[in-house]
Simulated assay, not measured.
Amino acid sequence: MNVDALINWVEAWAPPEWQESWDNCGWQIEPGILSQPAGVLVCLTPTLTVMTEAIRLKEEGAPVNLIFAHHPLIFSPLKSVATGNPVGDMVRLSITHGIGVYSAHTNFDQVADGTADVLSQLLELKDSMPVVPTQDGLGYGRVGDLPGPQTLDELLAMIQTKLNPPNLIHSPMADLQQTIDRVAVLGGSGASFMPAVAKTGAQAYLTSDCKFHQFQEGRDRNLILIDAGHYATERPACAKLVKKFRQQGVVWTQLSSNDEDFRQFW
């Protein structure tokens, strides 16, 4: 499968026009690789570390020509592209080594096998549905019933096992022995969706990047807020992308081993 055919498939599955107005999905850098067979390194965030990994793999003989990322490389309009600037260095290395960068962000959040849907699958939620529908059967977040009632302590242990975050944060008022039946999930920064989550009947909400006052809001909405971190809640969907690309006929694709969490707990 050539790069252009792969991107056409991606954009039929997760159309860029579904992105939010502030977002920047699609090609970040396209160095003339569309007609080449796709060799894809999948990552959460397109950083210089990931680009260095792609270059090393290419020098070792892997046919890498595309970094497929969830987060965009370019958010704000560029006023210059210069050496010493991280984006400028990415552009220089991309063109020099023939490795493109493509991002699927808020469009990927909404779809089947997207960031929220994969979290729902990992927790084995039954009758899962979007928290905020945007398309027929698609949308932001997922909410559903656990396979069977669990204590909050058991739910937290399962999340720790499935996502392996460096740290789990949860609402302090929560009784660890209380029974949880219904859970909402949204990968990445999802605290702003709490008003919608509260209407779904979910008792617990797994997301990330929650602030002090958002935990207070969770308490006031009778929601147990569980923050597993941005990386841990979105990285599983990147791993699922590798499997989907292989199913589409991409001969060489793998998950980046140098993708970074950017957080360390001491």
Rank of each mutant, 00 (worst) to 15 (best):
A239H: 12
W252G: 01
I99E: 00
P149V: 11
L223E: 00
F265N: 14
P166M: 09
I55T: 03
I33Y: 08
D220F: 05
M129D: 11
D261I: 06
P165C: 10
A69Y: 04
R92C: 06
P133N: 06
A204H: 03
L73E: 07
M173E: 14
D109I: 08
E234R: 00
T200G: 02
E59C: 04
R92L: 13
E11K: 05
P31L: 02
Q19H: 05
R182V: 08
V3A: 06
Y231H: 14
G190P: 03
F193P: 02
A157H: 09
L66R: 00
M173H: 12
I95G: 02
P16N: 13
D89K: 04
N8H: 14
G141H: 01
Q178A: 06
S189P: 03
L155S: 07
H213C: 09
G201L: 09
S21L: 11
T200E: 01
A184Y: 08
D113R: 12
M129T: 15
A12M: 13
V42L: 09
M129K: 15
F193H: 07
G148Q: 14
A104W: 01
D109H: 10
L241K: 02
T161E: 14
S76R: 15
H105I: 10
D227L: 09
G61N: 12
L156Y: 00
E260R: 14
S103T: 09
A112F: 14
W18C: 04
V42A: 09
G114E: 06
P72V: 07
I74W: 04
E59Y: 08
V64M: 02
A198E: 07
L255C: 11
M51G: 00
Q254F: 10
M158L: 14
L78T: 04
T83E: 11
N107E: 05
V132K: 12
Q150E: 13
A38L: 00
L163Y: 02
D227A: 10
G218H: 00
V183G: 00
N8L: 13
T115I: 12
L34G: 09
D259R: 07
G39L: 07
E217C: 08
C238A: 14
Q135K: 12
L41E: 00
V143H: 04
G137M: 07
Q36A: 13
D261S: 13
S208G: 15
P72K: 06
L93E: 08
A112H: 13
D89P: 03
S94R: 01
M158K: 15
H97Y: 10
G229L: 01
A112T: 15
V50K: 05
G98E: 03
N2W: 04
A14M: 04
K199E: 13
E217A: 11
A184S: 13
H105G: 08
S103F: 03
I7C: 08
I33T: 10
V118D: 02
L146F: 09
R142V: 03
A116Y: 02
R221L: 15
Q110V: 03
I159A: 10
D153P: 01
F108N: 02
R56P: 06
G137Q: 07
D89I: 08
T179W: 08
P149Y: 10
T45H: 09
V143F: 06
A198C: 11
G61C: 12
I7S: 05
L122C: 14
C25P: 11
L206D: 02
T49K: 15
V143P: 01
W266D: 14
E60P: 11
P172Q: 10
